[in-house]
């Protein structure tokens, strides 16, 4: 498995990404910006922490792209399950950072980092099956969509937006976990057929 870790670049890319993720979460957990909106007059109040998971997603995409397609597909090792494990560990690490910071700093935006990372990871993995590596832009696109049309009022996001929902909102957690599971399954199936 160390060879798989080396191939994916997990030990170099992911720790760096998590450090950057932590620093950004520390800096931005209580920052709010008024950004353009199509549905709200005067713009949307967005927690900047919503953008922070992009760092982990970019790193995860980079790791999953670092593969030897032909030997992996024709081999006997279940590297796709290792990739799934990498995905889950990355999301859990982001969640751990978020919970730790959220508890210490009493920050709701930090507490939901793990949930949001899970949700956006699901979008990334599902998108890769259709669009390939360019799907790394889909999570950013989702955040922009939430910014533009995701709010009914300043404090009331639509249920499907997930990212701005408060901590503990059950449907948001369900959607996030579902998205992540779907993404992992789609990744398994589509990668196997990629050749």
């Amino acid at each position: 498995m160390t060879l798989w870790l080396k191939t994916r670049g997990v030990l170099t890319v992911m720790p760096l990404a998590l450090v950057v993720f932590t620093v950004l979460a520390l800096l931005l957990h209580d920052s709010v910006a008024v950004l353009p909106s199509l549905t709200l007059t005067g713009g949307t109040r967005m927690q900047l922490a919503m953008f922070v998971p992009v760092v982990v997603l970019v790193a995860l995409g980079r790791c999953l792209d670092a593969r030897l397609p032909a030997p992996e597909v024709s081999g006997v090792r279940h590297v796709l399950w290792l990739d799934a494990a990498l995905t889950v560990v990355a999301v859990l690490a982001a969640a751990a950072v978020g919970v730790a910071l959220g508890s210490v700093l009493d920050s709701e935006a930090a507490l939901v980092l793990g949930r949001n990372t899970a949700f956006l990871t699901g979008i990334l993995l599902c998108g890769r099956a259709v669009f390939g590596t360019v799907a790394v832009l889909l999570p950013v696109l989702w955040i922009v969509t939430v910014m533009l049309v995701g709010f009914r009022t300043w404090t009331d996001p639509y249920f499907w937006s997930v990212l701005p929902e408060p901590h503990g909102e059950p449907h948001a957690m369900v959607l996030a976990v579902t998205a992540l599971l779907c993404g992992i399954l789609v990744h398994q199936f589509s990668t196997r057929r990629a050749l």
Binding site: L48, V55, L57, D65, V136, P139
Partner: peptide
């Protein structure tokens, strides 16, 4: 790599 640069630049430049 563009898979790293593009999403990060989108967010950084926008903000």
């Amino acid at each position: 790599r563009p898979e790293v640069a593009s999403p990060l630049l989108t967010v950084l430049v926008y903000l």
